[in-house]
Amino acid sequence: MTERNRLSELAALTRQVAKLSPTTLIAAESRFVEDLGVDSLDLVALVLEVQERFGVTIDEDQIGSLRTVGDLLRLISEAPELRAA
């Protein structure tokens, strides 16, 4: 999967989990809390879904340091499952 495809899939997943309106723009720079209104519970739900969808393991202690969609994308890319591939 290309980085770009991964971003669009992550954006769709974020929209679905946080029930964002179809008109909300989601980019790598989007800040979860400030730009998207995605709160700390939503982030936990999103990371659970990400692990299932992308088949990766993410240390849940890292959730607290996620600020943007790009931050989560980076965690996915750096997951051991994807790096080995």
Partner: peptide, 14 residues
Amino acid sequence: ARRKSLATSPYLIP
């Protein structure tokens, strides 16, 4: 039952 971890949805309790 499907998840690898014992985590639940964070929305379950609320």
